[in-house]
């Protein structure tokens, strides 16, 4: 595969790679770095890519793995862990200032969902992939993907209803 073809195919998926990275890593700068890193790796594996029919799916899988590795190394570092909580505290302060903004409250809630649920939500709701593609990217079975999506959306629904009822949870 030559450089031109590679760039053409990467252009179709680079925004999805960025959004997925941002969902998992939170910061825009870190997400951009992640995309650049993954594209460099893909470029280095060009000969292997020439035989792949679904380069876009492969790029998304690499992005997901890279971001999860970054998160693991972050959690392994005590200093970064403290920093991470500091960021969360700031976000929480923003949330308190703008308590009536249901959109920002929901976004904070979504960031607290388990990693796999965030990943599936991102790939389905933002990127609009079918279950087969999501299973391929997340390296899980389609059944597991459906379960994760269902659980994540149910949690979001409960949160939306709670916010609508001004924080009062109803038995629905």
């Amino acid at each position: 595969m030559d450089e031109k073809t590679f760039l053409k195919r990467i252009l179709t998926v680079q925004d999805s790679m960025f959004r997925l990275s941002k969902r998992l890593l939170t910061s825009t700068e870190e997400a951009e770095d992640a995309v650049q890193e993954v594209i460099t790796k893909l470029w280095a594996n060009m000969t292997q890519m020439a035989t792949l029919s679904n380069i876009e799916g492969y790029a998304m899988t690499m992005t997901k793995n890279y971001c999860l590795d970054r998160l693991k190394s972050k959690q392994a570092s005590q200093l970064r862990l403290v920093h991470y909580h500091h960021d969360k505290a700031t976000a929480s302060l923003d949330k308190q200032i703008d308590a009536r903004d249901s959109v920002s409250k929901l976004m904070v809630f979504m960031k607290d969902l388990p990693e796999q649920q965030q990943l599936v939500l991102q790939l389905r709701d933002i990127e609009q992939y079918d279950f087969e593609t999501i299973a391929q990217i997340t390296e899980q079975s389609e059944g597991a993907v459906r379960v994760a999506l269902s659980r994540a959306r149910k949690k979001i629904k409960a949160q939306l209803i709670k916010a609508h009822n001004h924080g009062i949870e109803t038995a629905s």
């Binding site: 760039l7 951009e32 594209i39 460099t40 249901s102 933002i126 979001i156 209803i161």
Partner: peptide, 30 residues
Amino acid sequence: AQFKPYFEIIASERKQTFKGQLPMKPSSKN
């Protein structure tokens, strides 16, 4: 209406694009 905020988030997230530079290096072919 109570579900609208979530769909607004999705619509806004879909608009996000990658603005970084592509880190292309000279290929082995080059």
